[in-house]
Design a protein around this nucleic acid. Sequence first.
DNA 1: GTCTAACATTTTAGATTTAAAGTATCAGGG
DNA 2: CCCTGATACTTTAAATCTAAAATGTTAGAC
Lengths: 164, 164
Amino acid sequence: MNQKATATELNHESRLQSEDHQSIRLWLRLLTCTNMIEQRLRARLREEFATTLPRFDFMAQLERAPDGLTMGELSQRMMVSGGNVSGIANQLEGEGLIDRSPVPDNRRTLCVKLTDKGRTRFVDMAVAHEGWVVEMLGDLSQTEHQQIMQHLAQLKCAVVPLEG
Amino acid sequence: MNQKATATELNHESRLQSEDHQSIRLWLRLLTCTNMIEQRLRARLREEFATTLPRFDFMAQLERAPDGLTMGELSQRMMVSGGNVSGIANQLEGEGLIDRSPVPDNRRTLCVKLTDKGRTRFVDMAVAHEGWVVEMLGDLSQTEHQQIMQHLAQLKCAVVPLEG
DNA sequence: GTCTAACATTTTAGATTTAAAGTATCAGGG
DNA sequence: CCCTGATACTTTAAATCTAAAATGTTAGAC
């Protein structure tokens, strides 16, 4: 049986009392929101398509890049380690969903693309996936959507400069 | 060598073009922000304290609950599976950082608390951790902080009702 | 008291993920 | 050509995480 805790009011945020610092609270709320959504999507992908979020993400990146992506680009865009990408690529290639082909002018590089089979398979999932996300976030008004987007953009900019 | 991709402009959001739906974009932006912050914290905890985010999270939950928590409560608050909590608890107990003691009126339940050693160890990390988060998020103004908090609260409420 | 179902936790098996080391390729200087 | 260092990717070992099964406990129905 699945014992995963359902996320309700008892989550990361309960860690903090009111006197604690604002930034930490903001971070924990962000984490809670993301985890909640991520867990639902993960469960749905497993139940309805017998696949995982990283596999879906991998294919989604390729769908958006018709000319293909290198393994490194996939690693960057998915924000996971290179080794991880290699593993997922092995799976998907084994199932005939992607194609890893060498690039003429650089023998270190591989160009990864969706196969026709992969694209067909993905489109099916993408439609459902989008439905789930809209189901979760669609109740927010147009204005709220825009405001949150802007604020997260600001937040992203605030985080990025500390790169080094 | 660490090959983790550094998160800059090339992240989840690049997956989508402008014509795509708002909810998906919001979700991907949320994911990007969380991943960026999470990866930095993970790296810092490893470099400076030779520990991991889940271990830190485990101890943080206990620090905020002086009366202790059951394994189930920890699972809920950390938003991970029960088996996962058991594993981390074994580690921390082995290192003398936490204490798992039976509860008189319910022999199924265990009460987990930080040991003095654990609390000392944690406080050290928590101070640094808060510094890192403030470093990343502290540039946002008071007003921006509040607005994002409110919006994420709304977002959380929009997601939760679909629990079943 | 005995069943039955729910509960709290642990165990198990397997997949994912990571950081780091390893392999192969490229680019530039000498 | 031969280094050197950087780059692209894979492999490895260890930790994490999950879902499901297993174990032990409790509570309520009968």
